[in-house]
């Protein structure tokens, strides 16, 4: 096992020297009208990801924009193109608008008005790298379409892009 790990590391090292590493997880294409149900809270297979309901504090927080009712986005798909930003290291550990805590390795993003916990497919149009992520925060920066976790920005190859634009497409609704 150990020897294999060393050779794996060496191999990765060699690869890193010659070609950029694509870390995006290939995700099978999902039909445009597919609605992926979020597993119920009692699903035993995901207990360490507690589903946190927005608490009362959030509802009264002034900086949280009014959440659009679900029926406003009922017609799928919903798609958009624009500038992406990402969270900074000091955001790690902050509470998001959904009540979940921001994790720099999370597959999460902030958006101005998409419902919390809705899922979107985000694509870097320059490279085709894509991922499916969950909206769990509200955007406060008006010049951005979406603000994603640091890890996602890295995974999508946006860090080195002079103008980090993305396509986003909603793929489900709660």
């Amino acid at each position: 096992m150990k020897i294999i790990l060393i050779s794996l590391l060496t191999l990765l090292g060699l690869l890193a020297c010659s070609t950029p590493l694509k870390t995006t997880v290939p995700i099978p294409t999902i039909p445009q009208n597919a609605v992926t149900p979020i597993p119920p809270k009692t699903d035993l297979t995901k207990p360490e990801v507690p589903t946190i309901q927005p608490d009362e504090e959030l509802i009264t927080r002034p900086e949280v924009p009014i959440i659009a009712p679900d029926h406003a986005h009922a017609e799928l798909p919903w798609a958009s193109h624009g500038l992406a930003g990402w969270y900074q290291l000091q955001d790690h550990g902050n509470k998001t608008a959904s009540g979940q805590i921001y994790d720099l390795y999370g597959m999460t993003a902030a958006h101005a008005n998409l419902p919390l916990f809705s899922r979107v497919e985000i694509t870097n149009p320059h490279t085709g790298q894509h991922a499916i992520i969950t909206i769990n925060d509200r955007l406060t920066e008006s010049h951005l379409l979406i603000k994603i976790s640091y890890f996602l920005a890295q995974q999508l190859g946006l860090m080195t892009s002079p103008s980090p634009t993305v396509n986003i497409r909603r793929i489900d609704a709660r």
Binding site: P50, I52, Q88, L89, H92, G93, N94, K95, G99, I101, L104, Y150, Q154
Partner: peptide
Amino acid sequence: LSYNGNEPPNTLAMIIDLKTELGTAY
């Protein structure tokens, strides 16, 4: 510790520090 989670205050825990590309995170 400034923890923002919802676990009860008597929950037992420990601090984990890891070196990320951005710097140490907790």
